[in-house]
Simulated assay, not measured.
Amino acid sequence: MGAGTVRRRALPRLIATLAALLLLQPSIAGAWGYFGHETTARIALANVRPETRTAIARLIAHDRELGTPDCRIRNLADAATWPDCLRREGWRWGYTFAWHYQTQPVDQPYDLRRSCSGGNCVTAQIERNQRILADETLPANVRLEALAFMVHFAGDIHMPLHSGDNDDRGGNDVAAQYGIVPGLNLHSIWDGALAERAVTAAIPPLVRRYSPAERAALGGGDSAQWGAESHALARDFVYPNAFGSEPPSNAAILTQEAIVAAVPVAERRIVQAGIRIAGYLDAAFAPGPLPEPERRP
């Protein structure tokens, strides 16, 4: 048997192994994955005021008061992944699971109030938890919980498929191939593989102190604006990028060209999330009350 034949026979096993390894990565567990969420938190921490960094450390000292020994918060990166860690205890934290997203059909205009009954959506919970975090009359463990939720959900909302949907649960029902790796879905690719490639391939590194001009260009806005941006990206880029010129179906192939085109989009959203989280943290720990939130039905 020739070496070429052996290699051809081994290739399917190699592809299957790569797919299995990708699926086993913890980074595919939630929006932007653990790796992406940790990166947004590190960007945020590098760009907050020194006073904010000190205040965060004081709250994190109350980690054991959360009563989640299997989901510790020892730093801001831990805080950013804590709400996904809670998924292992659905009996206790299941009421929070709807807070991670606010998907809306990409063929319809984005509506802040849609898919948010009773405030159970990502935009409402970003604003709610920032207000809890800012309230110094509340116990430290309550504010620490709010810190983790706010930082995590602000990351979630920047992932386009947590706002845009094509009757496929934000891409979860779309079987997808990432390059030569099969067995994934469109949502998991944007959560994991694309986010990780965007972070690891970035030059200069994404985690750094950004200049005032960069922060002005990348930051600002509120959860409503961030959700509308993600919805537009899902409509105008994510789905067309996955399907090319073919009409949408329940299967997609991200070619190498599609992946190369998607990486800068993922990179920008990760950086925007980190810079904007920094802004929300600085506002929460600044003297004086936060502005009144927008009224919701």
Rank of each mutant, 00 (worst) to 15 (best):
F237S: 07
T5W: 01
N120I: 08
A284Y: 05
R128L: 14
L138E: 08
A134Q: 08
E294D: 12
A262N: 07
G164F: 06
L66W: 08
T68Q: 05
V6G: 02
A31I: 02
I56F: 05
E246G: 11
M150Y: 08
T96G: 09
Y178V: 01
L147G: 04
S115C: 09
H37A: 10
R208I: 02
Q108K: 15
A3M: 13
A31P: 15
I270Y: 03
D156G: 06
I259P: 05
P204R: 12
R215N: 01
E214H: 01
R13Y: 13
H152T: 11
L186T: 07
P247I: 12
G279V: 06
H62Q: 08
G183W: 10
H187Q: 14
L186N: 07
F243I: 09
I180V: 15
A228K: 13
R169G: 01
A224K: 08
R9H: 13
A80K: 01
R295P: 04
V142R: 15
G164K: 05
G221F: 10
E136C: 01
A80D: 02
T123Y: 02
Q256K: 09
T68E: 12
F149T: 00
L218A: 09
R92W: 03
A10T: 10
V263T: 14
E214A: 04
I180S: 09
G119Q: 08
T40N: 01
P289I: 07
P289Y: 07
L66D: 07
L22K: 03
T123Q: 10
A41Q: 04
C85K: 04
V151R: 06
A283R: 14
N129R: 10
Q177D: 03
R235T: 02
L18V: 09
V106N: 03
R269N: 11
L147P: 00
I275E: 00
Y210S: 00
P69K: 06
S27R: 04
I253G: 00
A57R: 14
A20V: 03
A175T: 07
P289E: 15
Y280K: 12
R143Q: 12
R58Y: 01
I73G: 09
D63W: 04
A124Y: 14
A251M: 07
L290M: 10
E229R: 13
G192C: 07
V260I: 13
Y280I: 01
A202R: 05
D222H: 10
T96H: 12
T123C: 02
T81D: 00
L45N: 04
R276G: 13
D167Q: 11
Q25V: 01
S27L: 05
A46L: 03
G227V: 09
Q108E: 15
G90L: 08
P50V: 11
G90W: 09
A234H: 03
A176Q: 03
R49G: 02
G164V: 03
G274N: 03
I253V: 15
V181R: 01
G274F: 00
E292R: 15
Y280P: 00
P247A: 13
P204I: 13
G90Y: 09
G2C: 09
L14K: 08
E294F: 02
E127H: 03
T255N: 06
C85E: 06
D222M: 06
N129V: 05
Y239E: 09
V174N: 06
Q102E: 11
R42T: 00
T68M: 04
A46T: 05
R42F: 00
Y110I: 02
R268P: 02
V48S: 05
L144Q: 11
P240C: 13
P293G: 10
L281H: 10
